[in-house]
Structures are given as C-alpha cells and as structure tokens.
Computed example of a mutant assay.
Amino acid sequence: MHHANHYYGHSHVLARYCGLDPADVHEIRGYLQHGWNIGDGMAPDHEFTPGIPLFVWSEPTRRRAWSLGRRPVHVVGAPWAYLLAMEPPVEPARREGTIWYPFHGWEGQHVVGDHGRLIEEIRATETGPVTVCLYWQEYRTPRLRRRYEQAGFRVICHGYRGGWYTDLDPRFLYRQLAEQRRHRRVASNRLCSAVFYGILAGCEPAVYGDPMRLRGERSAFGGQSRIERQWAALHGPRVDAEAAHAVAVTELGADRLRSPAELRRLFHWPDPPAGGAPTPVAEGTGR
C-alpha cells in the first residue's frame, strides 16, 4: 500500500521467497520497515493510516511500536535475512579489505560533516584495501566522489533505492550482498542497516569516526547518543564479532523469519501458480 515497501527491492526479495514472480510489483497490505532504526521501525516522514498493519523486522521494534500505540504490528524479519536464506555463500570465499559506508543523507536532507577528516581516520585504521560505498545522492556528487577516489579508495554505489513506484531496483540487495561477501570487514561512522547486513553476511564489523549529522537533524527516540550508549559494544575500530552477530540476528529478526505461507497470508498475497517457477529477477541498471 505504501511505495516505500518497494525500496531497495525489498518486496521483490520477499515475493521470490513466497514463490511469486520477483520481477512484478506485489503490493503489501500494510507498511514494511525498510531500514534499521531505534523507534517504531517506520520512517518519521511517512504518514500512516490508523489500523493498517505494520510489518517490522524484530521483536524489540515491535515492542517499541506497541508502546507508541501502533496497532497491529507483526514481526516478519528483514528482507536481507530472507535473501541470505535463499542465497547461501559459495565456499571457500576469499575475503579481503573493508567495505566502508559513510553516513548518508536522503532526498530531503543532506549530510553535514568533514569528509576529509573521515578519510584520514579510515586510512589510519584500515590495513587492507578499502571500498567506499556511497549512497546514490552522494555518488552522483562528482566533487565528493572524487575525494574518496583520490584517497586511493575504490568507490561504488549499490544503486538507487526506488521511489513512488519508479526506478525500482529488484537487484539492489543482491549487489550489496555480493560486495559484502568480497570483504573481510564492514564499517561505518554510524551504526546502520549496512553494518548489520555485513555482520550477517560474515564480515567483521566496525563503527568509528565522526558520525556527522543531517542538516536539521532531530534526535528522535534518543538519537545518536542513545545508539552509542545502548549499542556501545558495536562501536570502535575492533568489535567482538561473536557478540555483534548475536545483536544483528536480533535486530534483523533473522531468528523470526516467517514461512512463505505465513507471509502470503499477512501481506494478502496469492498462492504461487501450481507448477510454475518464478521468473528470474532482471538485472538492475543501478546509479
């Protein structure tokens, strides 16, 4: 029902898991969480219709949403966890270096911070090759992209998340998974979805450097200071990988995945055609 349900190809991944055609746009009867946050799982700029279900990633998020009066709320797990279940790693895999995700803005807000200082911190911390993955907005800013390239980093973008049913990219998460499985470490200057994704994908995590901020950023639900307090064990250039994995499983709901039949019932999706195989997802163009 909401266009954000299709961000990053989330609905396409879930459709594939449910045995439906992942190339089609399948409407979800409700609001699907599309990124990790410390509130009710939903984006603060979205308006919601009371009584329409919320589909969140984890039990902690469900409890927070419930305490804020959201009804009904269902825990379904993150689309990333379903993708990993469908795309087991091919061993042995050679991993090298770090994939680094600088905190990014979005269409409504840009990041304020010192990228030069962040580059210095990355170079002083990482011992292997570094791939910097920029959000499409920053990637399409030549001056900013060149700063990371001139520092000797490989600079990439996983693609455009899509919006308002245009420029949808069913392959976004697939590209992200392929890149993360190439790297030994995943890092960012803020704890975020990409770090949790990398942990589940087998990367050693790190969160360090100037966290920067969004222009006009408001500290909802405790903001960055709460994140640094509550998830202190996940911050620093070296993090306990086993402890981090346990946290990632909880935050992404990887231990709460639904069966295909359950998801189809919750989303009001049809059963897959008898004897039919889903059409492979077409390769996205990216940005």
Score class of each variant (00 low, 15 high):
residue 4 A to I: 08
residue 6 H to A: 06
residue 11 S to R: 01
residue 16 R to H: 05
residue 16 R to T: 00
residue 17 Y to L: 07
residue 19 G to H: 15
residue 25 V to W: 11
residue 33 Q to F: 13
residue 35 G to V: 00
residue 36 W to E: 01
residue 37 N to M: 10
residue 45 D to K: 11
residue 53 P to R: 00
residue 67 S to M: 15
residue 68 L to D: 13
residue 73 V to N: 10
residue 76 V to R: 00
residue 78 A to C: 07
residue 88 P to T: 01
residue 89 P to L: 00
residue 92 P to F: 13
residue 95 R to D: 03
residue 99 I to V: 09
residue 103 F to S: 01
residue 104 H to M: 03
residue 114 D to E: 15
residue 115 H to T: 08
residue 118 L to Q: 11
residue 124 A to Y: 03
residue 126 E to Y: 14
residue 130 V to F: 13
residue 136 W to K: 10
residue 150 Q to T: 05
residue 151 A to R: 12
residue 153 F to H: 03
residue 160 Y to L: 11
residue 161 R to H: 07
residue 164 W to D: 12
residue 164 W to K: 06
residue 166 T to F: 04
residue 167 D to V: 01
residue 169 D to N: 13
residue 175 R to G: 06
residue 177 L to E: 05
residue 179 E to Y: 04
residue 179 E to A: 06
residue 182 R to Y: 09
residue 186 V to M: 02
residue 192 C to W: 08
residue 194 A to N: 03
residue 194 A to F: 01
residue 197 Y to V: 05
residue 201 A to V: 06
residue 206 A to W: 04
residue 210 D to W: 12
residue 211 P to S: 04
residue 217 E to V: 13
residue 219 S to W: 10
residue 225 S to F: 05
residue 226 R to W: 04
residue 231 W to P: 00
residue 232 A to S: 14
residue 235 H to T: 14
residue 239 V to W: 02
residue 239 V to F: 12
residue 244 A to M: 06
residue 248 A to W: 03
residue 262 E to V: 13
residue 263 L to N: 12
residue 265 R to H: 09
residue 268 H to E: 13
residue 269 W to R: 02
residue 277 A to W: 15
residue 282 A to R: 13
